[in-house]
Write a protein that binds this DNA or RNA. Structure first.
Lengths: 203, 203
DNA sequence: GTCTATAAATGGATAGAC
DNA sequence: GTCTATCCATTTATAGAC
């Protein structure tokens, strides 16, 4: 077990929390999402964890490293979902699969993906992540374009615009979806696929 | 003319830029959108305007005041669009009108609305703006619910989820729409209305 | 309307002890 | 793995001259 490697006895010992790197990154990502990366100071993070700055810097090299780990996690998951979708035999199946896969990734890795979607490109790290995301977006646009050519998607719309609208809908999920809430990820994926392809009006 | 009140002769005078309050707010909003509010320092803003901090503080009370003016602008425009939509006679017309109106506001007041959509609630000001936005969202959800009751909108979906999905699509416009670009606001509103109600699949 | 100079606080990060 | 103490850059904002 690589993450959360501390055993139960150690974790429950009174007095010293005894955090590990995974704890720090988890708490950091959560706080970055609540307040925004730039609005979150290292002091905010140490206050939440109940440790000093020195303790925190024992586990991570920098505030930015926490962001880097989270972004790599999110991008890796999205790229995996794309690879899975591309393995399907038809354009129709590939399109449905990437919508489904993206919704699942957003629901399952919500904190990390949320950070990715809010990037502004304020550092070399952020710019590199945005470039990697752009490559993902382009690949999805090609899926939509292929579906259009087979008349599976309306052609009165630019493929780029169509993709942005679908993913606008999908990505908005990170802003309101709660894992403990009444909507489960599977039925959410079904709903989004239905609304994206068939619209809100009853057929 | 309330905004940009300086006359041409004054504005073109060499040496001193001679900014007014509207200039400062415009530049601030633009910079907040490029880098994020928290990532933008007052020095960043003075650098862009080519003035010192003291000159800037002559025009505005604080960095936060710039945000306050922009948020009030965005919320006011959205509330106006809602009032206009509510004046329509049928549930169908009201639903189409609010989608149309929201897209138009997003396109026409993109910078201000973008700031609104990215708020995290990090201050009393931000919390108040989020609360005002929440009231707008609730009113729109009621429009969708009414349309559902008349079977104008599919009923296999919660009204709240449906609203979030439509507005996820609409709101994503601020992330990619460019006024100078190939897509004009009117055709964008038509496209979004079509995709939201009828979906991507050709009928 | 803009400047220089500066205050007062907070930012990210480190040294070295336990 | 965590602590106290500290460094130094940067932050928002102000005083007072021109």
């Amino acid at each position: 077990m690589v993450r959360g490697s501390m055993d139960a006895a150690r974790r429950s010992r009174r007095g010293r929390p005894g955090h590990d790197r995974a704890d720090v990154i988890r708490a950091g990502v959560q706080l970055f999402n609540e307040q925004g990366y730039d609005a979150t100071s290292v002091s905010d993070l140490t206050a939440r964890l109940g440790v000093t700055k020195s303790a925190l810097y024992h586990h991570v090299d920098s505030k930015e490293q926490i962001l880097a780990v989270a972004l790599d996690d999110a991008l890796g998951a999205l790229e995996d979902a794309l690879a899975t979708a591309l393995a399907h035999p038809t354009a129709q199946a590939r399109l449905s699969a990437i919508i489904d896969g993206a919704v699942r990734v957003l629901a399952e890795r919500q904190p990390e993906v949320t950070l990715l979607l809010r990037l502004r490109g304020n550092s070399a790290l952020e710019l590199a992540a945005l470039e990697r995301r752009r490559r993902f977006d382009h690949a999805v646009t090609e899926l939509v374009r292929a579906a259009q050519e087979q008349k599976l998607v309306r052609t009165d719309l630019d493929a780029g615009v169509a993709t942005r609208l679908i993913f606008g809908m999908i990505n908005s999920v990170v802003e309101w979806y709660r894992p403990e809430g009444p909507v489960d990820p599977r039925s959410l994926a079904v709903s989004i696929n239905a609304v994206a392809l068939e619209g809100l009006r009853p057929r």
